[in-house]
Design a protein around this nucleic acid. Structure first.
Lengths: 184, 184
DNA sequence: GTAGCGATGTATCGGCTCGATACATCGCTC
DNA sequence: GAGCGATGTATCGAGCCGATACATCGCTAC
């Protein structure tokens, strides 16, 4: 999942791991906590093996202090295949695009996504949230007496969040249909 | 994490895996999708090894159809050690209690949690969300010009959700302090 | 009647992610 | 010059997920 996020950031400019993590934190801060290095570095390794990115040691670069350590810092850059991969990931709108983390990451790169795909993803997401909403309504309507006050309060809060997100998505969809980007 | 949830449900009555999953889905439906069997069964195995629960094959039970298959359905019940473990998990209010899944699960069992612990958890959660909120405000105030319209919209939506959750928590905390349970 | 199908039910496997941990340097202050 | 927080790379164990497999039950449609 963070494959898409990494490719998206490296698409803008080459970066090393630490910087990548910081940028991810600000770009995705609204949807998830900072990504851990235990995910980041293995993912970079995999993507390198797949040929989407290349390692480009900055130890010999002039503008960066030489860092006398054995291990210089490693700058990653996206390859041509990586860009193709990025486009392919951007264009796909399957079930994983509609769950919480998947949707957030895709949405964060909507500026690079074509309008049709944006619309499909937004509608898929809406459908997903509507289903969750119906599930919660069912519980509140049918099983309310079997649950304690706190559990019910949790359901109500979740239901409220669902309703709000659906309204938000409706707005975005309407904007998208009329060919506007957000808040113009 | 789902150790707590499983113990909590088995505390009410013995159950087999499938039923457990369904109950978890309704009890925790507001905070997360249904838990997968790839998590449930290994977790049950671990808890059994630890002695928190025992397996109690229902194959010979009279009220349940015999199920001619080789593999009868397995009913799990909580042990005395399991109840102690449950109480210990309920009482702890550490960092893991404040992140999204952890908080939700603890909250779902607030009816069995003592008032002091409830208050500590709610305040810890509020602090956590306030930090996230400040992070988002910083980004919107300081880095807005470096981000595209969609990414900004995502931050705004996230910020809005944070503000609403803080208000929700304030309300719950006030209720808690005055000795009320939700929505009396 | 029997074929199909969705719900019930148990279980595993590979792969991804997290939190903890380790190690090292840089720039700053006391 | 000692200490410390930010910068920086990296691994490990453990937990969780999605996919998959397999088997039965009860219902409907042909």
């Amino acid at each position: 999942m963070l494959e898409l996020a990494i490719l998206g950031l490296l698409h803008e400019s080459p970066m090393h791991g630490y910087e990548l993590r910081k940028q991810l934190a600000t770009k995705l801060g609204a949807i998830r906590a900072a990504i851990s290095y235990g995910s980041l570095y293995p993912s970079l390794r995999r993507m390198q093996a797949a040929g989407w990115i290349t390692e480009d040691s900055a130890a010999h670069s002039a503008d960066v202090p030489p860092l006398t350590s054995q291990r210089g810092r490693v700058v990653y850059k996206i390859t041509a295949e990586g860009k193709e991969r990025f486009d392919a990931l951007l264009a796909q709108a399957g079930p994983e695009t509609y769950d919480d983390p998947g949707f957030g990451i895709h949405f964060a790169f909507f500026a690079r996504t074509d309008s049709d795909t944006r619309l499909r993803i937004l509608e898929g997401r809406r459908r997903r949230i509507e289903e969750r909403r119906e599930g919660l309504r069912d519980v509140l309507a049918r099983a309310a007496e079997r649950l304690d006050a706190y559990t019910l309060e949790l359901q109500r809060h979740g239901l409220d969040a669902c309703e709000r997100e659906v309204r938000w998505l409706e707005e975005l969809i309407a904007n998208e249909r009329s060919g506007r980007t957000p808040q113009q």
